[in-house]
Design a protein around this nucleic acid. Structure first.
Length: 418
RNA sequence: GUGAGCGUAGCUCAGGUGGUUAGAGCACCGGUCUGUGGAACCGGGGGUCAUGGGUUCAAGUCCCAUCGCUCACCCCA
């Protein structure tokens, strides 16, 4: 039997109800803040991510689904949302709009990783971007909106971490420092971190390997904060102060590292304790200059993405149920053969204002009631010889057992009056 | 990409040391029940036992490989 490809899955039932609920909530929360939805293609030219996300990032180096089309173009299934949104921003000249331009998106992303809990090869994100202003208040607002979304869904146990990754020059200085400071401990580091020492020493900071953490302790590694330019430090302090003023609960994390190269200054992540190893519900940061990497003018921006699949795991872990599955208001039961077409005609007349389902063959009343119950219907309507001669329908309330006969023409308005 | 555990019906699972025609519960369909309730009882449909190869008189069961799932590493949403 043919099955869904590895790391992808069919969404249906409660799973899809959760996803729709999350997306509808995001729509409400983000539009209230002035964001408009944008939908960009799943397929992008490879350079969008190579230039935007960064050629040395793991996402680009190891995790992109790439293909060459018949015209020889190198295309990829997008591994994240921001680079594509910024490509569209430039392409449509959105820089002439009043700043900041706030956009949100939802949709599937693709990364070729080994699947595990909370990690799929096709996964879903909801993301938010605010482009055009470098003010710390925009960063704080973005972070607050991310929490607004999670809280509107009823989540309580998530934790926000805020930090800074500095400007590119700050990071260069800090990487040079790390390389030098950790060189004497090279042999004590994990194999992975020895490789990182060459390529991206910053990554050693958030290694889970106890050997690495011990080395960081022993080498008395200074935080990135100490290497920030005065401007970057001021920006960070202003973001922190604004968050405090907003009453946002968070924890400062001096070692927060993000995997996408375009991030500068503000960085943040939201974690949830019940997600297993993939604990990040969402994350983001500032990405000033991403537009320049993509070949446009340099513009500031800040944004985030949440993993819809992980939010679903968190909602389940906190015992928050998915919205109820849709159930018919009325289930029509024909009691004899001529009533079948009448039941269908009646259903069609009531739709789409009312959710109406029916049996397609004559049923005995008891069976019709069982069928209606099985579908979660509120009312069952019987159509038989008696009702036909009188032009009526017998409607029974399944909860109370109460039954009444009413003219068919009045059924619609009767349902509406409930 | 690395490691460990696991693959039997739509779902949850039985099937000691190999031995007739592979089972149960739930779910689904029908009947008992031709104008009124969720029960009960009876019956029915449904399986390449993940796939391929091997050992054997005989494989769901033992061996190998592959694929998939799960969890972790890594990475990140």
């Amino acid at each position: 039997m043919i099955k869904a490809v590895r790391g992808t899955r069919d969404l249906l039932g409660a799973e899809l109800s959760y996803k729709r609920w999350i997306e509808r909530t995001a729509e409400r929360v983000l539009e209230a803040a002035g964001a408009r939805e944008i939908e960009t293609p799943i397929l992008e030219e490879a350079p969008v991510f190579e230039k935007g996300v960064g050629p040395t990032s793991d996402v680009v180096q190891k995790e992109m689904y790439a293909l060459t089309d018949k015209g020889g173009r190198r295309l990829v299934l997008r591994p994240e949302g921001t680079a594509g949104v910024m490509r569209a921003f430039l392409e449509h000249g959105m820089k002439v709009r009043p700043m900041p331009v706030k956009l949100y998106y939802r949709g599937p992303m693709f990364r070729a990783e080994r699947p595990q809990k909370g990690r799929y090869r096709q996964f879903y994100q909801v993301g938010y971007e605010a482009v055009g202003l470098a003010e710390p208040a925009i960063d704080a607002e973005a972070i607050a909106l991310l929490l607004d979304l999670l809280e509107a869904l009823g989540l309580r146990r998530h934790r926000l971490k805020v930090g800074t990754v500095g400007d590119p020059e700050d990071r260069r200085r800090y990487n040079a420092y790390l390389k030098e400071a950790l060189a004497p401990y090279r042999e004590a580091l994990s194999e992975d971190s020895r490789a990182r020492l060459e390529r991206n020493p910053l990554r050693i900071l958030d290694s889970k390997d106890p050997r690495d953490q011990a080395v960081l302790e022993e080498a008395r590694i200074r935080p990135l904060l100490a290497f920030l330019s005065p401007e970057a430090r001021d920006h960070y302090r202003a973001v922190i102060a604004t968050l405090r003023a907003l009453g946002v609960e968070f924890e400062e994390d001096a070692r927060l590292v993000r995997g996408l190269d375009y991030y500068v200054r503000t960085a943040f992540e939201v974690h949830h304790p019940d997600l297993g190893a993939q604990a990040a519900l969402g994350g983001g940061g500032r990405y000033d200059g991403l537009t320049a990497l993509l070949g446009g003018p340099s513009l500031p921006g800040v944004g985030w993405a949440v993993g819809t699949d992980r939010v679903i795991l968190a909602l389940k872990a906190e015992g928050l149920p998915a919205p109820a599955e849709p159930a018919p208001a009325l289930y029509l039961v024909p009691l004899d053969p001529p009533a079948v077409a009448e039941a269908l005609a009646l259903a069609e007349a009531l739709r789409p204002r009312h959710r109406v389902e029916l049996a397609y063959q004559p049923r005995r009343p008891g069976k019709g009631i069982r069928e209606a119950e099985r579908r979660g219907a509120r009312f069952v309507g019987f159509l038989g010889e008696g009702e036909r001669s009188r032009g009526t329908i017998s409607v029974k309330d399944l909860a109370s057992g109460e039954q009444k006969e009413l003219p068919r023409a009045k059924l619609g308005s009767w349902l509406e009056a409930l």
